[in-house]
Amino acid sequence: MILSNRAQGYIFVIITMCIWGGFTLLSRLSAKWHIAAWDLTALRFALAFLILMPILIYRKDTSFLWKKEPLILALLGGVAYCMTVYSAFYYAPAAHAAIFLNGCIPLCTAISAYLLFRFPFDRNTWLSLIIMIFSLLVMGYLLAQQSHHPFGLGDGLFLLSAMIWGTFTVLLKQSSLSAWQAMCSVAIWSAIVYIPIYILFLPKHLDDAQWQHLAIQTLFHGVLVVIVATLTYVEAIKRLGAFKTGSIITLAPFIAAVLAAPLLNEPLNIAIVCGLIGMGIGALQPWRWFAALKQ
């Protein structure tokens, strides 16, 4: 039986959602398994490099790597993003990642597009901005009732990660690279730049973690996140469109944040729930769904 393009699109969306949701849970779990952010970053890009570079050499398809775009994208979406986001999970729970990272990415992308290329905010972006700011204010007020320091280093790192990813997304959209070329560029150049620095200068704590945990994290981040999720995401966009695909997949980190409560024994109080709901609405923009249904 041959599936329709729409059915194939939803299959690709489900695969991507599972991987993106797993990214939130496993990244937080890496901190509990005593795997340092710089170790996980090195393992991720080393494995991806060992898989992708032989393929490119075999296909004699390496010319695109020697442009400035791949290097810039790798420094932002590869090295800088991984170091900040993996470090953030050491200081903040998964629910905070859904709020300050995934919830803020659409907003940071819109801001980066305006600052870099003067793309104006549309009505939907302004509405999202208002909802997100209001949600953060409510969440901050509720958290302040429980602690004099409601936000910590992890939240700041998640927000910085969202800014980096938003800038990366805008530059990627303006580049001439295909999805395959962009994915290979980030993985390969990140390995070339980061791994020598890691070997020569950064502390290594691989002995602090069990080899089974290292293997799980390396395979998941090096293969599923870097390679598989990128390709399934692009294939889903081809079949369902960017808005529908992005809206559905954005749910994954928020679902992961809820699952983190029983799976990782992380707190999920009323303040965090308010933040999740508000940032989820701002990121998903459900009013656009209703408008599309009326047409």
Rank of each mutant, 00 (worst) to 15 (best):
M1Y: 05
I2C: 00
S4G: 15
R6N: 10
A7R: 12
A7E: 12
Y10Q: 03
F12H: 15
V13Y: 05
I15Q: 01
T16G: 10
I19A: 03
W20L: 15
W20S: 06
G21K: 10
G22P: 09
L25I: 15
R28L: 11
L29E: 14
S30Q: 15
A31R: 00
W38N: 15
D39L: 14
L40V: 04
A42E: 09
R44W: 03
A46Y: 00
A46W: 05
L47E: 09
F49E: 08
I51V: 14
L52Y: 13
L52E: 06
L52S: 05
L56D: 10
K60A: 13
K67W: 03
K68M: 04
P70I: 03
I72P: 05
L73F: 05
G78H: 08
C82F: 15
V85K: 12
S87K: 07
A92N: 00
F100P: 00
C104V: 00
I105R: 07
P106R: 04
C108W: 01
A113L: 12
L115I: 12
F117E: 07
F119D: 13
N124E: 13
I130M: 06
M132P: 02
F134H: 01
S135W: 02
L137Q: 04
V138M: 07
V138S: 03
G140P: 10
Y141P: 04
A144C: 06
Q146M: 03
S147W: 04
P150W: 00
F151C: 06
G154S: 05
M163N: 02
W165I: 00
W165E: 06
W165P: 07
T169R: 00
Q174Y: 15
S176N: 14
L177Q: 05
L177M: 14
L177W: 07
A179E: 09
M183D: 07
W189D: 05
S190G: 10
I199E: 00
P203G: 08
K204T: 07
H205M: 05
D207L: 11
D207I: 13
D208F: 13
D208H: 11
W211C: 03
I216L: 11
I216G: 04
V226M: 14
A229I: 03
A236H: 12
I237G: 13
R239V: 03
L240V: 02
F243Y: 13
I248E: 03
I248K: 06
P253S: 12
I255H: 04
A257H: 10
L259P: 11
L263F: 15
E266A: 02
P267H: 02
N269M: 01
I270N: 02
I270M: 05
G278Q: 06
M279E: 03
G282N: 04
A283T: 01
L284S: 11
P286H: 10
W287T: 01
R288L: 14
W289P: 00
A292T: 08
Q295F: 01
Q295N: 13
